Amino acid sequence: MSDAPSRSHGRKSIRATLQPRDLLSETPELLHAWQARIVTLFPGAFPGVLGESLTGKALQEGLWQLHPIDLRPFGEGKHRNVDDTPAGGGAGMVLRADVVSRALDMAMAGTPEDRTDWPLVYLSPRGRRFDQAMARRWSRARGVTLLCGRFEGVDQRVLDAYQVEEVSLGDFVLTGGEIAAQAMLDATVRLLPGVLGNAASTEEESHSGGLLEHPQYTRPADWAGRAIPEVLLSGNHAKIAEWRRQQAEELTKARRPDLWQRHLAGTPETR
């Protein structure tokens, strides 16, 4: 980050209370766990649903670490202001470059210079759409830092200076990036070794092979006059695999023609 602003410009009061070591576990066996660092005005939103089920269990077991970083203490003045009116006029407020810069300095402390090994991401509706391939890429890194926007967004200068990657959850607008961050982290953390416990679980699900997942069934064999397809009860694994593949192709063709065309072209969404 040679073009990033100097790390020496933070206020002493901030540096006295927030240090890079605060982002690292003091437990030696957790020092190399996959990390998620979240810059947000609402640190209390985390872990949220990430603290439940398999992701929550993995968090407790130290398979990954979560570090919410409160943006407010980096603000300006008595009231720790983090935003100001848009240059050129317009509605809403914009997160200040100097405030966000100080927070990013803290959030990226001790991380690799290579962004492929530790992505720095701003959750933005104008960013590249998040997909399974991106989740897999993040899971193979050492960690990720997510900047949750609010109001009308973030001053472009700090995004440019820190070479921040912009990523969107979808073609819609949320009031902030916290919900998107939780969704993206859920998709990523479940791919970490040991989280699901069964690697095959991630190989047959939707998007993992460029197709939507086939229908699933379980007991009872007959429910409300609807029976499980006979092929699934046949014990013939070759025919079952063929049926599942056919179902996946038909579902993808009907529901996601964009994925189907990508599949036909031999460029699956997930690599």
Score class of each variant (00 low, 15 high):
residue 19 Q to W: 02
residue 120 L to V: 15
residue 146 L to K: 04
residue 182 Q to S: 09
residue 161 A to N: 12
residue 87 A to Q: 10
residue 39 V to D: 11
residue 8 S to E: 13
residue 143 G to F: 06
residue 10 G to F: 01
residue 73 P to D: 06
residue 33 A to G: 11
residue 254 A to P: 00
residue 195 V to A: 12
residue 112 P to I: 05
residue 239 K to E: 14
residue 46 F to T: 02
residue 208 S to W: 10
residue 3 D to F: 14
residue 218 T to H: 09
residue 251 L to R: 14
residue 267 T to M: 13
residue 235 G to A: 08
residue 63 L to T: 00
residue 250 E to Q: 15
residue 95 L to P: 03
residue 170 G to V: 10
residue 141 A to E: 03
residue 233 L to M: 07
residue 169 L to W: 01
residue 146 L to G: 05
residue 66 L to H: 02
residue 213 E to M: 12
residue 59 L to E: 01
residue 239 K to V: 04
residue 27 T to W: 12
residue 239 K to S: 09
residue 13 S to W: 08
residue 177 G to F: 00
residue 14 I to T: 12
residue 52 E to S: 13
residue 202 T to S: 14
residue 47 P to Q: 09
residue 136 R to S: 12
residue 260 W to L: 13
residue 206 S to C: 08
residue 245 R to M: 10
residue 27 T to M: 12
residue 42 F to H: 14
residue 215 P to H: 08
residue 56 G to V: 05
residue 62 G to S: 10
residue 106 M to S: 02
residue 126 R to N: 10
residue 38 I to T: 05
residue 26 E to W: 03
residue 63 L to E: 00
residue 210 G to P: 02
residue 93 M to Y: 11
residue 81 N to W: 14
residue 165 E to L: 15
residue 77 G to K: 06
residue 170 G to R: 02
residue 218 T to L: 12
residue 40 T to V: 15
residue 260 W to S: 09
residue 125 P to I: 10
residue 113 E to H: 13
residue 130 F to W: 15
residue 129 R to W: 06
residue 145 T to N: 08
residue 177 G to D: 00
residue 147 L to E: 02
residue 236 N to W: 08
residue 34 W to Q: 09
residue 12 K to Y: 07
residue 237 H to S: 10
residue 32 H to K: 11
residue 23 L to M: 11
residue 229 P to A: 08
residue 48 G to P: 00
residue 256 R to G: 06
residue 265 A to E: 14
residue 76 E to P: 00
residue 229 P to M: 11
residue 206 S to Y: 06
residue 56 G to D: 02
residue 220 P to F: 06
residue 172 F to G: 04
residue 129 R to K: 13
residue 55 T to W: 06
residue 247 Q to T: 03
residue 146 L to P: 00
residue 162 Y to H: 15
residue 70 D to R: 00
residue 167 V to P: 03
residue 214 H to P: 04
residue 71 L to C: 08
residue 109 A to N: 08
residue 271 R to Q: 09
residue 208 S to V: 09
residue 100 V to A: 14
residue 175 T to I: 13
residue 158 V to M: 12
residue 65 Q to D: 06
residue 246 Q to V: 01
residue 109 A to E: 09
residue 34 W to N: 00
residue 176 G to F: 03
residue 97 A to H: 14
residue 164 V to Q: 12
residue 232 L to C: 07
residue 20 P to L: 10
residue 102 R to H: 13
residue 262 R to G: 07
residue 108 M to W: 02
residue 195 V to P: 04
residue 233 L to A: 03
residue 264 L to M: 07
residue 54 L to I: 15
residue 198 N to W: 04
residue 170 G to Y: 04
residue 92 G to K: 09
residue 37 R to A: 07
residue 171 D to T: 11
residue 90 G to Q: 11
residue 61 E to Y: 02
residue 21 R to P: 01
residue 203 E to Y: 03
residue 87 A to H: 12
residue 87 A to P: 03
residue 4 A to F: 04
residue 212 L to V: 13
residue 263 H to C: 05
residue 52 E to N: 04
residue 182 Q to K: 05
residue 24 L to E: 10
residue 97 A to K: 12
residue 242 E to S: 10
residue 1 M to H: 04
residue 67 H to K: 15
residue 171 D to S: 13
residue 175 T to P: 11
residue 65 Q to M: 07
residue 113 E to F: 03
residue 62 G to P: 08
residue 66 L to R: 02
residue 123 L to V: 06
residue 238 A to S: 15
residue 270 T to G: 07
residue 228 I to V: 15
residue 56 G to F: 04
residue 19 Q to T: 14
residue 213 E to T: 07
